[in-house]
Design a protein around this nucleic acid. Structure first.
Lengths: 136, 136
DNA sequence: TCTTTTGTTATACTTATAATATAACAGTTA
DNA sequence: TAACTGTTATATTATAAGTATAACAAAAGA
């Protein structure tokens, strides 16, 4: 099992599920075309309700990470994830702004912050290229 | 007025208030020892409830950005903001992890991501040093 | 002294979100 | 046929977000 739930976390359970699957894809542990457990199986494994899992899955589908065929199951987007567009970049900037601001307030230098981001990026290994799309 | 509210945003209003004050400090628009509008004045200006403003203020106080003297008003922490400690770094890594993961999934390169972070960091100017604490 | 202003506390209400609990439906696959 | 799939529907509980008043106590200003 890939997903682990922290019931003490401030993050909602469905968000934890969503994030860990995204991280799994980024790290190459989950590959394009690979099938995920059914909502019932995942819910049972984690000891939570199937609707909570379904909520995470549906969000991932909306974001382009998953394809959900009605009776065929849940699959990591086989044609690869939707690449960064203008809307995503805007959202990314909006999300990082307050984080960077607080870091500055707390005396974190530009170099320190970037080093941390770089380490995080590299902690996912070379999982980025794992979505085997020739693209063009 | 420094704070602007977007009622369409997914971010709660008190979070918008909180974030914009942090960004104001990071950018040097708000300086250590400077006084903020009273909860009533701010609430009236923004057309929202005073408790919503108070919630943002209280969070900022808890995080060490503000000092709130009972009848003296709300003041940007005069002795400077609490510097980054182990707990903060942990929180920072936890908050950035899913963001970095999604960026990787969307084909954002390490260089692109870091460039964006660097631009954001520098967009706050040299506001970092503005809390005039001799410290040492 | 009196009035105003301050953050604070208390109570109440509405709305939205998160999470759970069942149950049933309609195709798919074994 | 039987088991499994995501989906839909309904209901309930708990928590968070936001608003609305009202009152309190201490400090500052006139």
């Amino acid at each position: 099992m890939i997903v682990h739930i922290d019931l003490e976390s401030k993050d909602p359970i469905y968000t934890q599920v969503r994030n860990q699957i995204v991280e799994g894809i980024a790290g190459g542990k989950l590959k394009a075309g690979e099938r995920l457990p059914s909502v019932r199986a995942m819910a049972s494994d984690l000891g939570i309700n199937l609707h909570t899992v379904n909520k995470g899955y549906k969000q991932l589908e909306k974001e382009g990470f998953l394809n959900i065929h009605r009776q065929r199951g849940v699959v990591i987007a086989p044609e690869g994830i939707t690449k960064a567009d203008a809307g995503y970049w805007e959202e990314l900037r909006h999300g990082t702004r307050p984080i960077v601001a607080e870091a500055i307030c707390r005396g974190v230098s530009e170099a320190e912050l970037i080093e941390m981001i770089r380490d995080t990026y590299r902690s996912f290994g070379k999982g980025g290229e794992t979505n085997g799309n020739g693209d063009h």
